[in-house]
Simulated scan of single mutants.
Amino acid sequence: MMHSNIRHIIFDLGDVILNIDIPRTVHAFSLLTGRSDEELFLLFRENELFRRFETGSLSAPGFRNLVREVLEMPQLQDDQIDTAWNALLLDIPPARVTLLQQLATRYELYLLSNTSSIHIDKVNLILKESSGVPQLHDLFKKVFLSYEMGIMKPDPVIYEMVLEQAGIEAQHTLFLDDNHDNIIAANRLGIQTIHVQKPPTILEYLVPYA
């Protein structure tokens, strides 16, 4: 790979910039409902809660109402649902924010995330508390969020939309994601990619570009 060809860098959010732990959300709902993690995982999957919310087919109120319906717990309050839903969101290490700010002096930075409005509101709070940066939009030239775009990775159309709306070319673009399917889909369009896998973080992966 020729690093000198890269002009634009697109970042995934979860486990790339923000540390996450998805089972924590399932367990948080388990504590609320008394049901097992395994039963809840199946319920969420069968009702496509993540996909429907993260593609914008459900609004935040619609999502909360569906959660109450699926869990058969109409008494659940909005804040209880939001807190459990956000349990998977951990922290944003300040060093990663500093790296993004340094990279922004040399490259155009973009964010592309499969996410929901409830998560993004919480992520912005985490970001501000950890680094003083008010919101994700302050770190990137443009932020692309699945629930606003109506489509999710790894659908190739979402990458085509990003390239077109950002006005950038695939061959001059680097994409970082922790999901292998997302990486493959981007790579097929000619986008250069880095599959972020723990324990290394973007601090180590992006040494050649810093």
Rank of each mutant, 00 (worst) to 15 (best):
V143K: 04
Y110R: 07
W85Q: 00
A95T: 11
T115S: 10
L103T: 10
S113I: 08
V162P: 04
Y110W: 11
M73V: 03
G167P: 10
S113T: 07
E148K: 14
H119T: 01
R68S: 01
D82G: 00
M152R: 14
G150A: 11
E160P: 00
I151A: 05
A84E: 05
D138W: 13
E69K: 13
M149T: 11
P94D: 11
L163K: 02
L100I: 12
E72I: 08
L111H: 04
P156E: 12
L71A: 01
E72P: 00
L109Q: 09
E72T: 08
I168V: 14
K128W: 09
D91Q: 14
F140G: 04
L76T: 01
E69D: 13
I120G: 05
Q102I: 11
S117W: 02
L103D: 09
A104N: 13
N114E: 08
K128E: 15
L163N: 02
T105K: 14
Q80D: 05
K122E: 13
M161Y: 10
N124W: 08
Q135H: 14
I158W: 02
A166D: 03
S130G: 05
P156H: 09
Y147F: 15
V143I: 12
D78G: 02
L111P: 06
A95G: 08
E108M: 11
L139C: 10
T98R: 14
S116T: 12
T98E: 15
L71I: 04
H119A: 00
L136D: 02
G150K: 13
T115C: 08
G167T: 03
L88W: 08
D155H: 11
T105G: 09
Q171N: 11
L139D: 06
S116H: 03
L163Q: 02
H137E: 15
F140D: 04
K122R: 15
L139I: 12
D91P: 06
D78I: 04
Q75F: 03
M149V: 09
